[in-house]
Computed example of a mutant assay.
Amino acid sequence: MSRQSGTTQISPAASEEHARRIARTGMVAATYAALTLVALLFLGSLAWGPMQFRVSEALCVLALFTADAVPGLALGCAIANIANIVLSGTGMLGMLDVVFGTLATALGAWFTWRNRRRPALALLGPVIANALIVPAYLPLLLQGIGFYTIPFTNIALDGAYPAMYVFGLLATGIGEAVVMYALGLPLARALSRTSLPKSLGADEGPER
């Protein structure tokens, strides 16, 4: 970066790196959104619902290799959740998933990036973030798509928020853990043996 005539000029190298980072973010976002929508089409309520296995969450392992995966995953989640409003007919209630589901994905991916030198620990980020955040708005979404009792029970959703939250915490946490450790961890190990980490600019670990 240089200063000429009182203005700040960005060097060509810095500009090129900025473009690469934008491209990486866009690539991650597009891949996450596409995989999520494909899962919705083929898995239905197993991709969105009271018991969900959103296989696209396995892509959170990309945050082990680049910080650009964090905004990319958040953007991809937002795009997929907006598309789901149209596909599922949840209406404005679906915006809860757009806002808070995206927040859960962003926080989980950030945790993964910060702890990337310890993958087994790092992948706990998406599990914990989704398990804590998603059940907070899950009862409203379930009622919006036609569920009026806690799934697999006869307990009415109305007036049963604490019980619904506990159910959601367990169901979402288990589903996310299965995806992250049964799919994500093997994926991360496979990707680490390719040229992908180098192309993403992976380094030794987070700053201390």
Score class of each variant (00 low, 15 high):
50 P>L: 08
46 L>C: 08
76 G>H: 13
114 R>Y: 01
105 T>R: 00
49 G>F: 07
81 N>I: 06
56 S>D: 07
91 G>C: 10
99 V>P: 04
66 T>H: 09
94 G>T: 08
107 L>Q: 08
65 F>V: 04
54 R>M: 08
62 L>F: 08
105 T>N: 01
78 A>M: 13
61 V>H: 08
48 W>E: 12
68 D>Q: 15
80 A>Y: 02
72 G>A: 08
37 L>R: 02
88 S>G: 06
94 G>R: 10
110 W>R: 06
44 G>F: 09
85 I>G: 09
47 A>T: 14
42 F>T: 15
59 L>N: 00
78 A>F: 06
113 W>K: 11
97 D>I: 04
88 S>A: 12
112 T>W: 02
45 S>V: 13
53 F>D: 01
85 I>D: 07
73 L>I: 14
60 C>K: 12
50 P>A: 15
65 F>P: 05
99 V>M: 13
40 L>Q: 06
109 A>Y: 13
59 L>R: 10
95 M>P: 04
57 E>G: 15
81 N>H: 05
106 A>S: 02
41 L>C: 00
53 F>P: 02
41 L>A: 09
60 C>P: 05
48 W>D: 07
49 G>M: 10
112 T>K: 02
94 G>C: 03
50 P>D: 05
44 G>R: 15
60 C>F: 01
73 L>T: 04
90 T>Y: 04
105 T>L: 02
65 F>Q: 09
38 V>T: 11
60 C>R: 12
37 L>Q: 09
97 D>N: 07
45 S>P: 15
55 V>D: 04
44 G>Y: 12
114 R>T: 06
64 L>R: 12
68 D>A: 12
67 A>M: 10
101 G>R: 07
92 M>D: 07
56 S>K: 15
76 G>W: 10
41 L>I: 03
64 L>Q: 04
108 G>T: 05
104 A>L: 02
51 M>R: 14
107 L>A: 06
111 F>E: 01
104 A>S: 07
49 G>L: 10
57 E>H: 15
73 L>M: 11
37 L>T: 06
37 L>V: 08
104 A>T: 02
55 V>S: 01
101 G>E: 01
53 F>R: 11
107 L>R: 14
83 A>R: 01
106 A>E: 00
108 G>A: 03
60 C>S: 14
59 L>G: 05
105 T>A: 01
111 F>A: 09
